[in-house]
Computed example of a mutant assay.
Amino acid sequence: MLLALIIANVVVDGGGIFYFYTQWTFTLVTIYFGFGSAISIYGCRKHCRKTGGNRTNHISLDSEQGTYVPPTIGEVADVSSNQSKHFDPHEATYHPTIAGPWVYAFQIIYQICAGAVMLTDAVFWLVIYPFLTPKGHGLNFMIVSMHSINAVFLIGDTILNCMRFPLFRIAYFILWTGAFVVFQWIIHACVNLWWPYPFLDLSSSYAPLWYLGIGVMLIPCYGIFALVVKLKDFSFARSFPDSYRKLR
């Protein structure tokens, strides 16, 4: 669905649409879902192979197959001592599996998308559409979809996943937005083009205030999504206390 909207937008408006922060964000969200699907498929295949291996070992050691040998008296004592050590709460430790680089990259993309989607939709619906859209220029299905469906998909995925959302990861979101601004500066330093957003125009006397305002907006945009994650954790922990797990 997301990829189809990007392709349709390119067909209608051409490759120049990628001058907009909206298309950058929409493309990143599409990459996130594609990346997540690939990781999920890999995890399912790995789990199936592991389950199959465990099933094979279980069958080969089943007493009905004639492989069971009762322990001797000395072995019983060893087994009892080993079990007591194993179940000792002071000695038993849990070592969780360390995430690989691709999983960390996936989490970073998710955390960038969260802030970028909030910023894209907030700026469009609160600033661009009511104040900067020319009169007589109405909305169409493509514009509404590009500035709403990304948030719907991402919030829906957030409800289903259990990934962490630490506040310090706002640094990646700031770097992403800064990369877009630097890209625009480089393009306009080399080619005489129109600015995709009027508040990015450096020739305006209000440019410092616009840039400061957009910079300040990064904090509440990221914070709103962090609040969504907190509300999800709180609601699920209250509704499903025995089954809901949160990564810490």
Rank of each mutant, 00 (worst) to 15 (best):
A171K: 04
Y172W: 15
Y172K: 07
F173I: 05
F173M: 08
F173Y: 15
I174S: 01
I174N: 02
L175F: 10
L175G: 09
L175P: 00
W176V: 06
W176C: 11
G178S: 14
G178P: 05
A179T: 13
A179H: 07
A179V: 14
V181A: 11
V181Q: 06
V182H: 10
V182I: 12
F183I: 03
F183P: 06
F183G: 04
Q184F: 03
Q184H: 04
Q184E: 06
W185H: 01
W185S: 06
W185C: 04
I186Y: 06
I186G: 03
I187S: 02
I187L: 13
I187P: 00
A189K: 06
A189I: 01
C190H: 04
V191G: 00
V191T: 04
V191H: 12
V191E: 04
V191C: 03
V191P: 02
N192K: 01
L193D: 01
L193K: 00
W194I: 12
W194K: 08
W194H: 11
W194E: 12
W194P: 00
W195Q: 00
W195Y: 13
W195P: 01
P196D: 10
P196I: 04
P196K: 05
F199R: 10
L200D: 03
L200W: 08
D201V: 13
L202G: 00
L202V: 13
L202P: 03
S203M: 02
S203Q: 08
S203T: 14
S203P: 00
S204P: 08
S204R: 13
S204E: 11
Y206R: 06
A207W: 15
A207P: 04
A207Q: 09
P208I: 07
P208H: 14
L209R: 09
W210S: 15
W210R: 08
W210E: 11
W210A: 15
Y211M: 07
Y211S: 05
Y211L: 03
L212A: 12
L212I: 08
G213W: 03
G213K: 02
G213D: 01
G213E: 00
I214E: 02
I214T: 06
I214F: 07
I214D: 02
G215V: 08
G215H: 11
G215L: 09
G215K: 13
V216N: 01
V216G: 02
M217H: 14
M217A: 14
M217G: 05
L218E: 15
L218V: 11
L218P: 01
L218I: 05
I219P: 07
P220Y: 13
P220T: 10
P220W: 08
P220M: 09
P220D: 05
C221P: 10
C221N: 14
C221L: 07
Y222M: 04
Y222K: 02
Y222V: 10
Y222C: 04
Y222F: 14
Y222D: 12
